[in-house]
């Protein structure tokens, strides 16, 4: 571990980096173009007119500011689901890690096995059950299924195993603290990096969720951004009455929609990296 650097390695990695950033660069370039230039200029470079701001304005105000509503919905669904999922996982993971009770291993195994269930297998029956409960076309239809994160539970269990030393729990018990008080006042803080990790990954999962809201929601006012963009995109592709101009909205909208998640990952990177370390090593 000396301070020497390898130029060859840096260049090789730079090539790889270009590959990963190229489509995003295209997206940025495309969102600066007018509809006409979008179809008639070279894709990977800017056209003569830079109309990024007018595109943004058009995208955001189109159809009575529906884009901002979709973004707001997405943030709401993602934050509530991710917060709830992280809390359930922290509580459950701690329980599985720190208590011995009948069925511990069996239950945990069942949860892990559930990762393998294909999502489409669940979508239709969930829809039918939700409609019987009157939950279809409400925010709960998106939030409730997103509260279950088997991977999150797995991560939290592994993390809790070592991050919260048994000795500290024991000491707290001797001091007369109740089990839940120990969890909330002692363990929770130690679990923070793990919780942030689960929070971020469920945040991504809900943010990118497409299939579930697609079938659960009928009312465009409740759409998250993915379904909204796909709806615009299918307007552009279904023909009959609408025009290719929508495509420009789809592109600018896509560009705007990826910014918040990227920002969240950049800001919180210290946490999720250490949280993941636990899951990876102890597998």
């Amino acid at each position: 571990m000396t301070g020497r650097r390898s130029n060859a390695l840096t260049i090789a990695m730079a090539v790889l980096l270009i590959y990963f950033l190229l489509p995003l660069f295209w997206l940025f370039v495309a969102s600066t173009k007018t509809v006409g230039d979008l179809f008639s200029s070279f894709g990977l470079w800017f056209a003569h007119d830079i109309s990024l701001f007018s595109n943004i304005k058009q995208t955001v105000t189109n159809d009575g500011w529906v884009f901002t509503r979709w973004m707001g919905n997405t943030v709401f669904y993602a934050v509530v689901s991710a917060g709830g999922a992280a809390f359930l996982c922290a509580l459950g993971g701690y329980g599985f890690a720190k208590y011995r009770f009948r069925g511990n291993a069996a239950m945990f195994g069942a949860v892990l096995g559930a990762i393998m269930v294909p999502t489409t297998a669940l979508a239709i029956p969930t829809y039918l059950l939700f409609s019987k409960a009157g939950l279809v076309n409400t925010p709960l239809a998106i939030i409730l299924p997103s509260l279950v994160s088997p991977f999150g539970l797995y991560l939290m269990r592994i993390y809790a195993q070592d991050a919260v030393p048994d000795g500290i729990i024991e000491a707290a018990r001797i001091d007369g603290a109740g089990e839940f008080r120990i969890f909330f006042q002692v363990a929770l803080r130690m679990l923070a990096p793990g919780i942030v990790t689960v929070l971020l990954f469920t945040l991504v999962a809900t943010w990118n969720n497409y299939f579930l809201p697609l079938i659960m929601l009928n009312n465009p006012d409740l759409y998250p951004i993915t379904v909204g963009l796909a709806a615009w995109s299918s307007q552009a592709s279904a023909g009959g009455g609408t025009t290719g101009a929508v495509l420009s909205l789809v592109i600018t909208g896509s560009f705007l929609s990826v910014l918040p998640l990227i920002a969240a990952f950049l800001l919180l990177q210290r946490y999720w990296q250490s949280g993941l370390a636990a899951g990876g090593v102890k597998a």
Binding site: L128, S131, V136, I215, N218
Partner: peptide, 11 residues
């Protein structure tokens, strides 16, 4: 959506 809603009987 129409089909699923009809199947569900609501919405």
């Amino acid at each position: 959506k129409l089909r699923t809603a009809l199947k569900a009987g609501t919405g």
